[in-house]
């Protein structure tokens, strides 16, 4: 049976792994390669690296760490941040990344998704979506440029519509980051993920809100997501991946040994 994936997310800024609360106040967690290697050894099923400076700063970011990561780990990993063209994506994939994830640039240029799909195939193309629940309007809004608080903006897209759009254009996987929950460890946004799941025929990865092991079993069992992404609970050592996987197997969730 296809296993549900546990995916530590490493936010990268200036070549270091960082973590902020609700996208703010980034603090350095550690160096990239030793953390990547440690997570692979600990049983992570996949890693995601978000270069959170890239899209906002409109500059070419040094990605040489991608190839150093590819050298040391034996599980798949995805690189996000600052990929604005087929060329950018090609370089990252050549360096050994298995997938590339596009967020803000896809909102600026949705055709980019189609071009990436046509060149590299659907399986390489992950679309990251930062979704914010606006209490006043009761609407899930897609946000852009979330790496930099000063530049973060609300797009015209409602989340479900964007999810449908990116699939039509050839996305192979969607990472839905529920911004209201991000970094506060109160649990995944089950309601939103359930809603989006209905519109999502490709693998869906939940992001934002993991705080306890129970949050992982809830999101797999109630929202039927393919993978659960988390950062701070792993970086801070609040949950050990081996313990989490044992716990999830006890809950009869398909998990890789």
């Amino acid at each position: 049976m296809l296993a549900r994936r546990i995916i530590p997310c490493l936010d990268v800024k200036d070549g270091k792994v960082v973590k902020g609360v609700q996208f703010r106040n980034h603090e350095i967690v550690g160096d990239i390669e030793p953390l990547a290697e440690a997570y692979a050894k600990a049983g992570a099923d996949e890693l995601v690296f978000y270069d959170i400076t890239a899209s906002s700063d409109a500059r070419v970011v040094d990605k040489s760490w991608v190839s150093r990561v590819a050298r040391v780990i034996d599980i798949p990993f995805c690189v996000a941040g600052g990929i604005k063209s087929v060329e950018d994506a090609g370089k990252i994939l050549e360096m050994g990344a298995d997938k590339i994830s596009v967020n803000s640039p896809a909102l600026s240029d949705p055709e980019l998704i189609t071009r990436l799909h046509d060149r590299f195939g659907q399986q390489c193309v992950v679309i990251g979506i930062d979704s914010f629940y606006d209490e006043q309007s009761g609407v899930y809004q897609v946000k852009q440029f979330t790496g930099d608080e000063k530049r973060t903006q609300t797009t015209a897209w409602q989340t479900a519509d964007w999810v449908r759009e990116v699939q039509q254009r050839g996305a192979g996987e969607i990472v839905l980051n529920c911004m209201n929950q991000d970094g506060v460890r109160k649990g995944y946004d089950i309601q939103q993920l359930k809603t989006i799941r209905e519109h999502c025929k490709v693998p869906l990865i939940a992001s934002g809100g993991a705080g306890e092991m129970q949050h992982f079993s809830e999101v797999f069992q109630q929202a039927d997501v393919d993978g659960a992404l988390a950062a701070s609970v792993f970086h801070k050592g609040l949950i050990a991946i081996a313990d989490l996987k044992t716990y999830l197997r006890e809950q009869h969730i398909a998990i890789r040994h």
């Binding site: 049976m1 296809l2 296993a3 549900r4 994936r5 099923d45 996949e46 659907q122 399986q123 192979g172 996987e173 025929k201 490709v202 693998p203 393919d226 993978g227 890789r256």
Partner: peptide
Amino acid sequence: DKRLPHMGWNQ
């Protein structure tokens, strides 16, 4: 009714 691509760890 399963999803494609078939992506992830399988037996």
